[in-house]
Write a protein that binds this DNA or RNA. Structure first.
Lengths: 150, 150
DNA sequence: TGACTCTGATTAGGTATCTAATTATATAGT
DNA sequence: ACTATATAATTAGATACCTAATCAGAGTCA
């Protein structure tokens, strides 16, 4: 531990936090919903998006395209999103959120709202505000790094 | 975005950072090695552990036992660890690192050392030092929360 | 127009993780 | 000693991710 580069411990803590939060989140969400699926639904509603290609969605969430294909296929099978061929580009598709998707998103939001008071005692808003800029900057930097390394 | 609870954005940044770092890490590691497997090897060497049960390892890494069973099975198949029945408890098993496991861990350490200078420009040590205590506290709090919720 | 390259989506194969359920052994209490 | 409960490991079934490879349509350039 003591002779480890600081970065090891730093990213290790982040990894464990993400894992614990993801699991708690998934358990709080309606049966069958996952963080990834909720994120997609939320993206459409928050940004008021009508249609967006899988590739664009993948870029927005920093995941690979096959990952997005898989998530979207699952969401289409449960009617949370609709997918059609892009009339202007035969390669591409266009994804849109369905009414059922919007309803599910609302249910998720409600479920998550109930989680806030549970997490509150663990980390105060002020603490998050202190760390957020650093995290955001780090995320942006890492994302840029990834694209270079490609 | 603007009307989201702060926690959403906070944990979202953490999730993306973890994902990006995990992928970079896995790519840097020797072929076939993963973060989870490296973590197990590193644990044995750093803490100078001879034998430890899968359940203890699962607790140490905050993962479920089936997850550890799966990871250990894979590591045993590649001779990175050895597993035997606990002579004092018929239910339990005892895991130990092999010579090959130690060698692999050394190779991983070397590979990761080369990553440090790549990450350095993205986040300075001083920044990590500033955030680390908060992250550690958060991780500990979430872990306690999980056990309560169980 | 034809060849080369790029981009979008998908398929195949693999690891990590989770929950639920099963099997076996240990421990405690009556 | 027997029963009930708790703990260890595993199996089964799913989701999210990744990389590599494939297929198809779009763009570029000579």
């Amino acid at each position: 531990m003591t002779d480890d580069p600081l970065a090891f411990e730093f990213f290790n803590e982040i990894g464990i936090i993400d894992q614990l939060v993801s699991t708690m989140l998934t358990n709080a969400l309606p049966k069958g919903m996952t963080k990834a699926q909720f994120t997609v639904l939320n993206h459409f509603v928050r940004l008021d998006i009508v249609e967006k290609s899988p590739a664009d969605l993948a870029r927005a969430f920093q995941v690979r395209r096959p990952t997005m294909t898989s998530t979207l296929a699952r969401m289409e099978s449960t009617s949370l999103v609709a997918i059609r061929v892009d009339p202007r580009d035969g390669r591409a598709k266009l994804v849109s959120i369905t009414a059922a998707g919007r309803q599910m998103r609302e249910k998720c939001i409600a479920a998550l709202a109930m989680m806030i008071p549970i997490i509150e005692p663990v980390i105060a808003n002020t603490e998050m505000q202190v760390m957020l800029p650093g995290l955001r900057k780090l995320r942006i930097g890492l994302d840029a790094l990834r694209e270079k390394t490609l």
